[in-house]
Amino acid sequence: MSELLAEIPASALVPEGHYGPRTPAPGVVAAQLSQLALATVAVRPNALDLVAELALEKLGLALPHGPRTASAGDLTLVGTGPRRFLAIGEGITGDPLLERLGHAFGKTAALTDQSDGQMVIQLSGPRTRDTLAKLVPIDLDPSVFKAGDAAATLVALIPVLIWQADPAPIYRFAVPRSFTPAFLRALVGAGAEFGLQLTGTGRG
């Protein structure tokens, strides 16, 4: 266990702040994002083609094929499994997101609000990939995993969904709410070597 975390209760979010050596700019910037709404979209049997048409028509969005993301305006869909997606709306809450998706898909898909069930954590900065190499058991080399790619996997024994939001690179994680403290501990432990700036988790 990193000494950094020894005094922080395992059940608490790691407080925002700077972790690791002071460098002119942090190597990694981690932010727990708020103002996001999330919902699972589970397409009913034999309705995928119809849902794809509806997504294009009503949301202006090409349904992602496989573990990839597709965005239109403030709405992103992440492929999480066959016929399954995580919808992320920026700047709105769960009910309006569900309304919007319900309006688009009608009875062709089951919608479930997850806005309180998953925390979204964003990673950016020059040492992001070096940090992720200590956490994510999949190949994130830009030749293999590109902006718009997504993966559900296991990080430090925690089930997460990761997707690359920008080639910069910027990555985002969806982490189950109760696992967020543990995820942040692993993240801070991995990134502190490069200087990690954490925001959005409160002062502890």
Binding site: I158, F183, R185, A186, G189
Partner: peptide
Amino acid sequence: HHREKDFRPTRPT
């Protein structure tokens, strides 16, 4: 990383 407090994830309610 998985030792002491971090031996396994702790899930708070």
